[in-house]
């Protein structure tokens, strides 16, 4: 405990760095997954391929990927860009199948009805299909957020500053408090983001929590 109190500025710095590497891939994966999923749903063969491909992508071990990416991207091994690119790929691997399912689950009747009322195709997608897929998209995003926060720690092994570095450093120097602080803060950050997304979803999609009284 005394180690933690003595190192509060370090912990804060690591936490911020961790957050800085988590947010971009979460946002990128979410924003990119939606058009990819929409395209995949429109082409049957692409959907099958992407869903299978996404599973394979997720199976790529993270540490080698962090090492190979700088070679491909021409970045330094300690650059956070590698982390962001790698985690965006993992995020997509989770989010694309999830978004594809979310969009497919939107009732065809409702979409047809929107067309019949005079929604143009893009407006129908943005203002009807996307919001209706919202609850399932949010569920997918929560998984991506938690997974991303946990994967950012791997960068610590390569010397990219994050909460992961606390375990590595604590392990090498046998400071149990530092290891524990790293684990607890990582978990807390994951839970906090998860809650934030859940609350954001509730605010943005108030209709999804309404209990039906009538017959559907």
């Amino acid at each position: 405990m005394s180690w933690v109190l003595a190192n509060l500025p370090l912990l804060a710095e690591r936490l911020l760095a961790h957050l800085g590497q988590s947010i971009p891939p979460i946002v990128l994966a979410f924003v990119l997954a939606i058009p990819i999923a929409k395209l995949a749903n429109a082409r049957g063969w692409l959907r099958g391929g992407l869903t299978a491909g996404a599973g394979l992508l997720y199976a790529v071990p993270s540490l080698p990927l962090f090492i190979v990416l700088p070679i491909i991207l021409g970045t330094g091994i300690r650059s956070t860009v590698n982390i962001i690119v790698a985690l965006t790929i993992y995020g997509l691997a989770l989010m694309v199948p999830s978004a594809s399912e979310a969009l497919r689950a939107v009732s065809r009747d409702t979409l047809q009805s929107a067309t019949a009322q005079g929604y143009a195709p893009l407006a129908r997608f943005l203002r009807v299909e996307l919001p209706l897929a919202g609850p399932a998209l949010v569920a997918g995003l929560r998984v991506v957020a938690v997974s991303t926060v946990s994967l950012v720690t791997v960068g610590g092994v390569l010397g990219v500053p994050s909460l992961g570095m606390l375990f590595i450093d604590g392990f090498q120097r046998s400071i149990t408090a530092e290891i524990l602080a790293g684990i607890v803060l990582t978990a807390a950050l994951a839970i906090a983001l998860d809650l934030l997304i859940m609350l954001g979803g509730r605010l943005a999609l108030p209709w999804s929590r309404v209990r039906g009284e009538g017959v559907r």
């Binding site: 009747d109 409702t110 047809q112 009805s113 929107a114 019949a116 009322q117 009807v128 919001p131 209706l132 919202g134 999609l205 209709w207 999804s208």
Partner: peptide
């Protein structure tokens, strides 16, 4: 005007 079976109302709009 278009009315369909099962109303086809948008569930996310009041």
């Amino acid at each position: 005007g278009y009315v369909m079976q099962a109303s086809g109302l948008l569930p996310h709009r009041t």
